[in-house]
Amino acid sequence: MSRDGQPMIALSGVNKWFGTFHVLKDIDLEIHAGQRVVVCGPSGSGKSTLIRCINRLEEHDEGQIVVDGITLDEDMRNVAAIRREVGMVFQQFNLFPHLSVLDNCVLAQRRARGTPKAEARERAMHYLERVRIPEQAAKYPAQLSGGQQQRVAIARSLCMEPKVMLFDEPTSALDPEMIKEVLDVMIDLAQSGMTMICVTHEMGFARKVADKMVFMDHGRIVETAPPDRFFAAPASERTQLFLSQILSH
């Protein structure tokens, strides 16, 4: 809970279309400070679009999204303010290939926050240590493995000291051997009390850290439940089917 009991993120009646394709249907969701939410569902169910609406990489067409007390609307100042408070980690890492690992972490601090250079570098090194790759600071992204790149991407977001972290399938593009090193960092982050929304199919991770499971299908939130109930006794048949498919191996 944040200081006044308001949720950190509140979506109400959110709808979105890509052309005529109804990608988000009447989404209501509340996330409080410190909560870890895992969103799962089949591909095309709208889960990525959902979290991309929270920092307005996608614009919603109907309904209201409030982040940390600020309503997302056309006003670019609100959007910029929210983006500074909300970090995002992408499936394809999206590091800046022309900048060193250190500069990837320094750039936004300097530009968006106006942090002095020495302080920005110090903070960058702090978070690179936290994701356990300080020795790679001088390298360029193309010289790192996928797992290392994703950890740099996490550090880059953390450097902005966000209140919320969004993860958009952070391990889906990784080799099996590298998934663990990224999940370890995410678990560590969850245990430090960060508010997190993760779109992921890593159910082991979900069981371990999630406070709330959200299952989506065809643009709708089908089921919301705490993980123990979600995995043991899902209410909806669609959820049961989905879980039986991904947990069968």
Binding site: L57, A80, R83, M88, F90, N94, L95, A108, A112, M160
Partner: peptide
Amino acid sequence: RAQVEAGNSLGLT
């Protein structure tokens, strides 16, 4: 386009 999104998501103008 993903590069622009990464920049935007960090709060850059």
